Simulated assay, not measured.
Amino acid sequence: MSGPMRGVRARVACLSLLPLLGVAGAAAAQDDYYRGKIIRIVVGYTAGGGFDTYSRAIARHLARHVPGKPAVIVENMPGAAGLVAANSIYRAGRPDGLTIVNFQGTQVMGQILGREGVEFDARKFEWIGAPTRENAVCALTRASGITSAQQWAASKTPVKLGSVAPGGATHDVPRVLQIALGLPIHLVRGYKGTAEIRLAAQSGEVAGGCWPWESLRPTWRQALDAGEATVVLQVTEKPLADLPGVPMALDLARTDEARQLIRTGIIAPTTVSRLYAMPPATPADRVRTLRAAFLETLRDPEFVNDAKQAKLDIDPVGGEEVERLMGELFRMPPPVLAKLKELLR
């Protein structure tokens, strides 16, 4: 082979290595950045509830998948169904790739509906993902005397349900069901999280509540297994395999308008209820790093085993898909939006 030809091939070989060297360089830069640092996961609810349970499980495994293996800690910032945490991290969270906020997807509906108190623009958060797609259910205690959807619908007095605040599933799910299905409901607001609602139900202060099955099942398992609490309604697009015989809200709705309200006001926002995000303007390379680490963690066999033992459902949603789903919510048809504003603002 002639000298010039060998030189050309050598240059081509070097050029072909440049993308790989770029990837390696980026990985090394992230390794250097995260080594010795601490990533905070700020949970918008109290310790012991479903959001806290998921976040602590993720925190135990996330560091292995972040370059540099930083420490990962969980902090609780409860208030207004996660709104306090979402507002705080949006306004004051440093965009340094070290802060993740975990709050409820229904709070995004609060922005769309123009609720007071929402200080963030969901379209500016840097979405990391969600550990599972969720499905809302309503569960009542045996002591309440209501053990089926039929008994609930026929109740002469409103059934007391525990609620955190507008914008959370514990408020918005029963509020939509109250109008769409005509269920007699008295919302008791002010609880800091589902852990408090469960305690209130056990003491007889309320009859139960509505929130995602993926949270209710692991945290209220003892009462469910003992028959002290019963899931009486599932607010889902398809019936859940582990809730045979439990009626679906869509099947009980008598009009197309009622079904549309249930789909748009409950099912769509609940699907990505357990959101993880970083503050606006977080550097793109750190967003990509934590999005990848988040998904790798959720697929890690050790994490999956821990999740199974804790009865945590895992059905990962990546950051890019969360962005797409958020876009769909913001393009909601005006007539539907007007009706939901009437119900939920």
Rank of each mutant, 00 (worst) to 15 (best):
V164C: 06
A143T: 08
T147N: 05
V176I: 13
A26S: 07
P131E: 12
V336L: 11
G3R: 12
R291Y: 04
W213H: 09
L181W: 04
Q111N: 11
L18I: 13
Q222M: 07
C14F: 04
F120W: 11
A143G: 10
E257W: 09
M77C: 06
K311N: 15
S163I: 02
M326I: 15
I179M: 03
R286A: 09
T282S: 09
V72W: 07
Q222S: 11
V322S: 12
L62G: 03
V235W: 00
A154F: 02
R217E: 14
K69L: 05
L161R: 00
V173M: 06
V232E: 07
D31N: 10
W127T: 03
R299G: 12
T147Q: 13
T170E: 14
S273W: 08
T236H: 02
W152Y: 04
L295H: 10
I179S: 14
G245M: 01
K124A: 08
E323F: 04
D251W: 08
Y34G: 07
W213F: 09
Q178S: 13
Q107K: 10
Y45S: 15
L83D: 03
P19V: 14
E228G: 04
A249M: 02
A130N: 02
R259Y: 05
R35I: 07
S273M: 13
F330Y: 15
L161I: 05
A226H: 07
A195G: 00
K124P: 01
L181V: 06
I73P: 02
L233H: 03
P174L: 11
L216R: 01
A130E: 01
R142C: 00
P218I: 05
E328K: 14
L250K: 01
A86K: 05
E214H: 05
V101K: 03
G204R: 02
V176M: 06
V101S: 11
A27N: 09
E237C: 02
R221M: 11
G190D: 10
G162W: 04
Q111I: 00
L98A: 12
F125L: 14
R142A: 14
A253L: 10
V235K: 01
P184Y: 00
H171D: 15
F330E: 07
C14P: 01
G36E: 08
E196H: 11
L98H: 11
I58G: 09
E126M: 08
I39E: 00
G48V: 11
G265W: 04
P19C: 13
G97T: 11
A143E: 15
T170I: 06
I58T: 10
C14S: 06
A338S: 14
T255N: 01
A27S: 08
R254A: 09
L275I: 12
V159K: 01
T264K: 12
W220I: 02
A85I: 02
I100M: 12
A57M: 09
V235D: 04
I179L: 05
E126H: 04
L243C: 05
G318E: 12
A80T: 02
N135S: 15
L250G: 03
A59Y: 12
I112L: 15
